[in-house]
Design a protein around this nucleic acid. Structure first.
Lengths: 242, 242, 242, 242
DNA sequence: CATGAATGAGACTTCATTCAT
DNA sequence: TATGAATGAAGTCTCATTCAT
């Protein structure tokens, strides 16, 4: 039992084809990746006795990471923000990197919970797109820092085995969107002349970059922003010339 | 003995071949800032013996910065990529940061050259928007790494006096776009129900994030991509239902 | 509030059940040294509430020290092995070092008890040597971990005032053996051409290094091993050629 | 080429069944273990341009390791002894551990060079034993610190994949000695009643522990010490009673 | 121009130890 | 007695930078 916590319990979002709505399920299974990567003699125990403190600290860390960038964030800055000494963080977490990992995997798990709920509703392509975008803005609202971190850091991270699940998630994400767009074209609700991959990137980037400027509680609710974005994405900004 | 060049006064953005008057070109401020920051007794000589080598090295550095992030990039990685030892870079540049600065200011100078040319043509708002977007994709094509760096790093850099010109540029950028959009609404070529600031961010992000996936020489010319993007931005991806 | 016990004055080697007078028993010095080292105002109470638990913990600690080396052993490893948390050990012991000290001083006290019994029997030199070696193997059998620790760590420990008694013991040990060997030569039971100091080291190392591979309960009794070793030490491994 | 040196060239002693005498061959092949363990993107270059400095630093490090123990030795202590700053060591070596590895592997390579020369002479068992012991004392003379380190640290190190070659060497060592002793018994030059494994440990420990007290240049040449040791090991310390 | 070697600041991390509960 | 959470010192290592050659 020794050191009581550590992030061993966080779940890789890869495993998330969960049939039930299960929102906010707090990550029950360890990512498959980890099991394969670590053959160290299991020096860390399994469950955290006080998940609240962990959560607080992770939220603080996420804010600093988002604000300053992962590399530019020293553990001392996180500790300062948490009102403790740098070394004390290591009572709760294995490493700076494991904080990052837990932040991202928690976010992705919840994101996929939301997406899966949408996808299981088997809406039409336009309604699916609307629901996915709206859900995305909700996630940005709830996990703004995590999204911002994801945007900025995921590129470098995918190189590391530990962050394999980012790649997995990305692929699933891409497939989901491409399928939706293709269905929309096939069903004549999206324009036939679209370059699907380009449209995918267009929608994807359009939505997620919002995390870089969105401030929760700033006048617009996520649903409002989603509606405006969807209006632009679907109908364009130009006046209809008939 | 004395290092013959250094970018402090040489390739600064001020000296670039600006075709247009370009008032408030942000690059102009950089040298002033530097002068204020450094009080060392003029220990550096004036011009680099071989500006080509400088340019090569900067291009290499930009690629590595874009690939790995500025903070995660060590000067050794740059030197490796350039086939030299880390210390040798200091014959050409004052510091890692000055490389970054030169990369960004060079890019911004050229960007504003292009933008200013467009703006002086006094086109209608829709044509202005089209021309600015197209020009932007051309810049992405020519300075992909610089754009990617700009996207990723500018947020924290603006805190430093040395990078004041980033803020200046951003403000001018925002004003240019907001004005164009407002003119468009006023002239009934853009939808009246737009949230202008949201639309600004929408267009801005839509364009620049492309730098994160665009690969020069990859099938699509910048003009083609611009056309497709414009089509989506202006007319939306949905089929017109009347 | 105040920790009830601590080994500072309790199980020190002085208080052990020494059957023989054992002048200069090295353990005697330890308390004096300690008193000199610690100037804290007697903040610790006298005796541990449950000396058995202390003993168990020390045995566990000794095993881990022997296995991994003193420096490489963290108090957390000891606590893990004892099924408690690292901080909890400090209810029982002042410090990691005081555990080490108690392990070593306990061992040395018992060792000298045994040696003194032998020496008081006033046997001939060969029989003395045989008895000392046999006694040594018995100590290895009973205190394998302590012996292994002693072998590995005593060299750097002697530099510390707290472990002065190690030096004292070593000197007494050396004197005992040299005397025995010299007597043996004088009485023509040991070879005259011996380099006494070399022979001393030979016998000493031969015996004690066994602690590094000896496993109690592993086929050979300490007495058997002693007999075999003595056979080799006394008569050599070569066949007699006369 | 970047960072110029690093210990990538050191040879595992496992590979040492070299037919030719080849003394002091400076380790040409990388240990098989390393290739299997490291899949990192080969960030370190291959050959050291100034092996002399490396050698000096390794000798210094070996002395400190031997004196204080590997764990208790801080890189700062090594750097102090070398007259430089701690960080500067990392220009020459990857890590503290890689210094240790290079020290040990260099020593073992030379040791096996010497042993192989002896073994290829196909002497009788007694002469082989004498030659091996003598060779061992010569190695102690030349690599005292490395031998002392080996004695103290090899136990913990074998757990690490990087030090696999220690296990390999140990097994080969054991086989060599057991074979020699068995031949001796079979050919009636060693006593028939020997417990071979015990005798092996007896001889092995007897020889190598000498590194803990041997000081080069201290009156006795390695050959003299070897002769005295052999005299004791072969014929015992007791006077012959027939 | 470039190298080789070093500096020094600061990063992440470990760990013995403390203490309120 | 033991836990949970923290402290603070110290350790290994990285990296931008310097400078004599």
């Amino acid at each position: 039992m020794s050191k009581p916590n550590q992030n061993s319990t966080s779940t890789g979002p890869t495993t998330s084809t969960q049939k039930a709505p299960a929102k906010k399920s707090p990550a029950k299974q360890a990512p498959a990746t980890k099991a394969a990567v670590k053959q160290a003699p299991a020096k860390k125990a399994a469950v955290s006795p006080s998940p609240e403190r962990r959560g607080e600290l992770l939220a603080i860390a996420a804010d600093v990471f988002a604000e300053q960038g992962y590399n530019a964030t020293t553990v001392r800055k996180i500790a300062d923000a948490a009102g403790m000494l740098a070394g004390s963080l290591y009572y709760h977490f294995d490493s700076k990197e494991s904080m990052l990992e837990e932040i991202l995997s928690t976010f992705l798990t919840e994101l996929w919970d939301g997406y899966d709920t949408v996808l299981q509703s088997r809406l039409g392509p336009r309604e699916t797109l609307e629901a996915l975008v709206t859900e995305s803005f909700r996630e940005i609202d709830r996990h703004r820092s995590a999204v911002a971190i994801y945007q900025k850091e995921s590129r470098h991270l995918v190189a590391q085995a530990r962050f394999q699940y980012l790649t997995d998630s990305q692929q699933r994400f891409e497939k989901t969107w491409l399928t939706t767009l293709e269905r929309g074209v096939a069903e004549h609700v999206f324009r036939e002349d679209l370059d699907i991959r380009l449209a995918y990137r267009f929608v994807r980037d359009t939505v997620w970059v919002a995390a870089s400027w969105y401030r929760p509680g700033g006048g617009h609710s996520p649903e409002e922003i989603a509606r405006q974005y969807l209006s632009m994405v679907l109908d364009g900004i130009a006046v209809r010339t008939t």
